[in-house]
Simulated assay, not measured.
Amino acid sequence: MGGFKALRTKDLVNVGIYSALYFICMGIAEGATTLLTGLLLPGFTSIFVPCVVGLLAGPVYMLLCRKVPRFGALTIMGVLMGLFFLVSGHFALAFIPYALCGLLADLVETVLAAADPGRRVLRDVSYVVFTFGSLGPVLPLWFMKNAYVASLLKRGKSQDYIDTLFSHISAPTLLACVALTLLGALAGALIGDRIVARHFSGQAGRG
């Protein structure tokens, strides 16, 4: 079991590689969701993006867990994803959820999973926890509207853009966003489990 052993240079390289792949999944998810919702459901992009991220990134996450069976890998990836939000112009506090969810997912995967030799269920739980970090850029839409609007204006966004963005922000859509994120993450975990089982069934799992 990898557990709390220190990350090696090879581990850090793998974390970098899989973080880059996860970042690509995020980019594809945002691009595809923006295109589809722009055509079919204008104003709903932010509600669906975390769900699609969860759906697409499962295999990357599961493979990272296989390749780097040590505490810290998921935390680092969460911090890197949060930094991506920070440097790409998202709301400043968007960094916090991914960093926090990365740490919590790492604890679930490394500590709690030690009690489960098969680890599939708890690994899926850790992926769901990690995926909720992708809510970082959208939660301020509901909880920090004034500050979020100010940040958009500072970035040069038009009032029409802002009005469209907030046109469907309500308590029901918050619940829908959380529910969709959960479903997307569960589906992504299932897909990731199957891919790993198919191609790595003869190898030892994380730990």
Rank of each mutant, 00 (worst) to 15 (best):
A179E: 05
P59V: 12
A32E: 03
P172I: 14
F132M: 02
A113H: 03
L153T: 08
H90L: 10
P97H: 06
D124E: 10
L41Q: 09
L122V: 07
S170D: 10
A113L: 00
M26Y: 09
F143A: 10
N14F: 10
L104K: 06
R8E: 13
V121R: 08
V53E: 11
F85K: 00
I96S: 12
F4H: 12
E109T: 01
L80F: 13
Y98F: 14
V49S: 04
S19V: 01
D116V: 04
A32H: 00
T33F: 03
Y148T: 13
R120V: 13
G188Q: 04
L190R: 11
L186A: 15
I191D: 02
S46T: 06
R194K: 15
L39E: 13
L80M: 15
G136D: 00
T34Y: 06
I28C: 07
L174I: 09
N146S: 15
L21P: 03
V15K: 02
T164H: 04
F48D: 10
V87W: 13
L103T: 08
K157I: 06
A171P: 03
S19Y: 04
P140D: 03
R119G: 13
I47P: 02
S201V: 02
G118W: 01
G82V: 02
T34M: 11
V121I: 13
L186C: 15
L180C: 12
L83C: 14
K67S: 13
T131C: 08
A150H: 05
I195Q: 01
G202I: 09
S151F: 04
C25S: 15
G78P: 09
R119H: 07
L141T: 08
T181W: 02
A73Q: 03
E30K: 09
S46P: 03
L64T: 05
A176G: 08
L122E: 04
G184C: 06
